[in-house]
C-alpha cells in the first residue's frame, strides 16, 4: 500500500506542527505584542522628555528591529514559512475533526472548538495584517495609509483609526478586527501551549494538566493585556503628536537620505 507523504511522516509532521506553533510563532507573538504595547506603556517610561512617550518608545523598538541585518530573509524563513506550515497543516488536521459543542458543552470541548476557530480567523487576520503593513497592500486599508518603519506609531495609529485625522467608522471596524484577531491568536497560543504539554507527554495527571493550565492561562492573560494595550494605544493615539515625535527622533538620530526620502513621501501622503 502506498502511503502519502503526510501519512509516512505523520508523527514527525504532527510534532513539527506543534513545535512550529510554539517556536517561532508563539515566541514571536510574545515579543511582537510586548513590543507593540510600548505604544501605551511608553508614556510611563521617563526617558522620552517632551516627546510622545508611547510613539517614541515604539519607534525605538521598531528601529531596532529594522536595523537587524537580512531582516527579510529572517522574516521569510523564520516567520512566514513556519507560520504558513503551521497554518496549512493546522487546517488539514482541523478538518479531520467535527465539533460537537452543542451536545457536549464541556469546558474542554469549548477550548477544542475555539482552538480551531481561532486558528482560522487568526490566519485571516495574520494575512491581512502582514499584507497591509508589510507588503504594502494599502488598498485593503481604509484611508489608504501605508505603514512606515520610520513613522511606525503615527502610521499605525492612522491605519487603526481609519484616517490620519481621527476615527472613522471603517477605522473602528479595523480596530475591532485587530482586537478580535489578537485576542484569538493569544488564545490559540496559550491553549496550544496547554495541549502541547499533553501531546508531548509533559503533563499527564489531571492535577498536572490543571497546574499547567494555570500557567498557560496566566501567560495568555498577560499577552492579552499586552495585545489590547497596543490596540488601545494605537486607536487612541494622537497621530500628529506621534508624528512630531518621530520627526524629532529622525532629526536627532542622524537620519539617512533614504530616511529623509521616506519621510517626505510619508508626509506628502498624509497631506493629501
Amino acid at each position: 500500500m502506498s502511503e502519502s507523504l503526510l501519512d509516512r511522516h505523520h508523527y514527525l509532521l504532527r510534532r513539527l506542527h506543534s513545535l512550529s506553533g510554539i517556536m517561532p510563532a508563539g515566541a514571536f507573538l510574545i515579543s511582537h505584542l510586548t513590543t507593540n504595547s510600548a505604544i501605551l506603556w511608553g508614556h510611563a517610561n521617563g526617558k522620552w522628555d517632551g516627546m510622545h512617550g508611547g510613539a517614541a518608545e515604539f519607534q525605538h523598538e521598531v528601529s531596532f528591529i529594522h536595523s537587524i541585518p537580512f531582516l527579510l530573509l529572517i522574516e521569510i524563513f523564520g516567520l512566514w514559512i513556519p507560520i504558513a506550515f503551521h497554518a496549512l497543516l493546522g487546517i488539514y488536521y482541523a478538518r479531520s475533526g467535527k465539533s460537537n459543542l452543542a451536545s457536549y458543552g464541556y469546558g474542554g470541548n469549548l477550548r477544542y472548538s475555539l482552538q480551531r476557530i481561532s486558528g482560522y480567523i487568526g490566519l485571516i487576520f495574520i494575512l491581512y495584517h502582514v499584507a497591509t503593513l508589510r507588503w504594502g497592500w494599502t488598498f485593503l486599508v481604509p484611508g489608504g495609509t501605508e505603514w512606515s518603519a520610520e513613522f511606525a506609531g503615527s502610521t499605525m495609529g492612522a491605519i487603526m483609526q481609519g484616517s490620519p485625522d481621527g476615527f472613522t467608522a471603517m477605522g473602528f471596524a479595523i480596530a475591532c478586527f485587530y482586537f478580535l484577531g489578537v485576542t484569538l491568536l493569544v488564545y490559540h497560543f496559550a491553549n496550544g501551549l496547554w495541549t502541547a504539554a499533553i501531546t508531548w507527554g509533559l503533563t499527564i495527571s489531571e492535577a498536572a494538566q490543571k497546574r499547567w493550565g494555570y500557567v498557560c492561562a496566566g501567560l495568555g492573560v498577560g499577552l492579552m493585556f499586552a495585545g489590547w494595550a497596543a490596540i488601545i494605544g494605537f486607536a487612541a493615539l494622537d497621530v500628529d503628536k506621534a508624528r512630531e515625535t518621530e520627526m524629532q527622533m529622525i532629526e536627532s538620530h542622524a537620519a539617512t537620505p533614504e530616511q529623509a526620502d521616506t519621510l517626505s513621501t510619508a508626509t506628502s501622503k498624509e497631506d493629501h
Binding site: 505523520h10 508523527y11 488536521y93 464541556y106 474542554g108 477544542y112 472548538s113
Partner: peptide, 19 residues
C-alpha cells in the same frame, strides 16, 4: 500509536473522560 490514527490525532477536547 505514531501512525495516522494514533495518539497524536487526539485534539484534547477531553470529552472522553467526561462521558
Amino acid at each position: 500509536m505514531s501512525k495516522p490514527g494514533g495518539v497524536s490525532d487526539c485534539g484534547n477536547a477531553q470529552n472522553c473522560v467526561q462521558v
